[in-house]
Write a protein that binds this DNA or RNA. Structure first.
Lengths: 209, 209
DNA sequence: CCTACCGATCGGTAGG
DNA sequence: CCTACCGATCGGTAGG
């Protein structure tokens, strides 16, 4: 979506190249979701796409650049599927609920075959250092920040109790969303999604009393 | 601990060999905790230990066997640090609280440099197939089962309300423990541990009213 | 986008 | 536990 847009407006890259570029990133996201960002190798990706390794280097100068662009593309997909639709709900606890519900549905629908892309990515590189680690941290920080800001707005609107600790609330909502994702993928058991939904709804009810 | 015991009682393996075997698994656990079970390579491990690659093959027939024994050793360490000490607390909600508290402390103390070994492992191999995936699933299942059983006992003793859904309770406790681990390592922020402790205590209070 | 190639590292083996 | 080696794959380059 981003890349087709770029291709139409910026003639730096020909339409074919842009289409290939997008197809590469789609395949890269799928591979990284299942095998990890470190398991995403140039050879495997080239095989998957039916092109040569050096063909990939026409699009990416290095593996690191491929990894970073893959992470960015995953972030844009996440925004499109989870964040943007929630913005249709007016500010307040309803928007917070929308964010949580859209996240759980995004996991349940297996937008990425390995579950939430950023959950997998962060767990993989949490104890490492470098640009990939930093991008993972930034992604989670941004998501947590959005949840936090949405909750603060809801509190200012009087839809969340004055005595509620918003940071603590977000920690708990985040924990329940992540666990629903994690256990759903690990056990291949949709019941985990239901438990997550139930817990989230209970916490939101309590906060919004 | 297991291996020194085996060495004393089973003369199949000489004391030196047993000591080396244990040292190999210690290093393997550390490497796997930071780089993942797939990032645990024979060459890296041999370097770390100052021996040759073929030297490792005197102890393990294949990489898969090394991986499986590393996972088993991590499980034994987890039992020693988290599960066994909790059994000193009598059955009931106190034991459930002990299990949670010992887990959080195990994370906080960085027994493994990459956080909880099984959390990292499971997230890494959740979307894959094979014996390593199965061992990861079994580890988490066993841990969840222990929590569940402990909670059921507490309910039978009347220390958890009759109207409490025990499975839901365990899902939520698990989520909070895992998130404390995950965010603590990712952000290197001990505040995440405090949030986890606070949320766990609140949930236990509510369940035990 | 291709073929052809590079040095490094992978898991693993032969033989001691 | 060692040296010496195997074929496969890694990220990457030269040259087109």
């Amino acid at each position: 979506m981003l890349y087709s847009g770029v291709a139409k407006q910026a003639p730096v890259r020909r339409a074919d190249g842009a289409r290939t570029h997008g197809a590469i990133l789609d395949a890269a996201m799928r591979l990284a979701s299942v095998h990890g960002i470190n398991g995403l190798t140039i050879g495997r990706l080239a095989d998957e796409l039916g092109i040569s390794k050096s063909g990939l280097y026409a699009h990416f100068d290095s593996k690191l650049e491929l990894q970073m662009q893959t992470i960015q593309a995953a972030g844009e997909l996440f925004d499109r599927v989870v964040v943007d639709p929630a913005m249709a709900t007016p500010p307040g606890i309803g928007r917070l609920r929308s964010l949580c519900e859209l996240y759980v549905t995004y996991v349940e629908r297996k937008v990425f075959p390995g579950g939430c892309f950023f959950a997998s990515l962060s767990a993989e590189v949490d104890a490492q250092t470098g640009p990939v680690h930093d991008a993972a941290v930034d992604g989670i920080r941004e998501w947590l920040g959005l949840l936090q800001q949405t909750a603060v707005e809801a509190k200012e609107l009087g839809e969340i109790g004055r005595n509620v600790d918003v940071e603590q609330l977000i920690f708990e909502l985040f924990a329940l969303m992540e666990s629903a994702n994690y256990l759903y993928v690990l056990f291949d058991d949709v019941e985990q999604i239901s438990k997550g939904r139930a817990a989230i709804e209970r916490i939101l009810q309590t906060a919004g009393n």
